[in-house]
Nucleic acid binder design. Structure first.
Lengths: 206, 206
DNA sequence: CCTACCGATCGGTAGG
DNA sequence: CCTACCGATCGGTAGG
């Protein structure tokens, strides 16, 4: 009690600052997805959260810095969802199916900042890349043992690398054409994608 | 002779104008792919062909107009390559294989303006879209009977629409990761993609 | 196609 | 976090 009375202001201020920062990231993410990074102005972002045009620079030192933060936020959300999705699953195929579905949900349904990563990689400066790649690697690292196990079990095509890149392409490209309520469910897309990717030991398709 | 002496200047001028216009389209295409539409300035484009900054507007009425022209140029190149690729092929599977390979060549190898279509669709204004879509439809129209025939022959998965979208995703996404000389040939990628997509009547994979 | 230019806008900053 | 502002740049135009 005495403790919470002594330093309430700093703690509250810190929390608020974090909130405002988060609001900026969320607003920027939406705008970057809708209009693109270059076409979005600092003023757009400030307006979206009720700030004046100079104020976002109190939270981020540059627009480029906001892009980096937005991408990392999206990756973090994907990582969290991924962890939850595979929790308790042991069989490689089960884990694989869970990863594919989680990935599609993050891209298409959860309205995270993840799509910014897919759209605006080119706009990310050389200097910002290393940091983003580090988190991206953590996300992809979860797929690797699953794919390795699938290959060991003969459920994956010969060339694991190309197959993986083609699969990610098929999944990531959905962001370009999928519209919710368009008569297609996420699960239908996921099942079809899994179907393409997996085969059983005798070479038959599921 | 008398004819060619009478009006040499206008004919030559017309040809030159077409050439300059083409040069601008080619330069703009390269820059749009490398830096993005918004990050590319009219001055960048003018510099690339040795013009002053105001001069591109003699050939195009706006930057948006250049984007439209670049996309249509890319589609035209794809259409031409496509026509040549399937020439004389009758069997649906043969035609399909030819289409996939032609598509990958256009995207990854021929350095056409086609990738601009994949990268910058969002930057294309509402008013410009109809015209581009018209040409895009002609390109996709060639795929349709082939896919229909494959389905009739039982060589295609149940859900033709999702399958098609996933395939285009896998192919189009290659632009994000493929680097020539990276140890992977176009044919390897094409074969793997075809492999995912096609199945025979008994449900076995090739 | 160039010269010369304009109005608008943009990312970012100083000072509080 | 706001006010007030700046230098740079951008798409585009008039007039030749």
């Amino acid at each position: 009690m005495a403790r919470s009375e002594r330093k309430p202001a700093p703690r509250k201020a810190a929390a608020d600052e974090g909130n405002r920062r988060s609001e900026l990231i969320r607003a920027a993410g939406r705008l970057f997805v809708d209009k693109g990074f270059d076409a979005t102005t600092i003023r757009d972002i400030a307006d979206a959260v009720g700030m004046r045009s100079g104020s976002p620079f109190y939270h981020f030192k540059s627009k480029q810095d906001m892009l980096k933060a937005v991408m990392i936020e999206g990756l973090q959300a994907a990582l969290d969802a991924q962890q939850t999705a595979v929790l308790g699953l042991k069989a490689p195929e089960e884990r694989f199916r869970a990863l594919v579905k989680s990935h599609l949900r993050i891209i298409l349904e959860d309205h995270t900042e993840f799509p910014v990563l897919l759209y605006e990689w080119r706009a990310l400066s050389e200097e910002s890349r290393a940091e983003v790649i580090a988190v991206k690697d953590r996300y992809e690292a979860v797929w690797q043992p699953v794919l390795r196990d699938l290959k060991k079990a003969g459920r994956l095509g010969d060339d694991g690398k190309v197959a993986r890149l083609l699969l990610f392409g098929a999944l990531n490209w959905t962001v370009q054409w999928y519209r919710s309520g368009g008569g297609l469910t996420l699960d239908q897309i996921a099942e079809q994608a899994i179907d393409f990717f997996l085969c059983d030991k005798t070479g038959k398709r599921r």
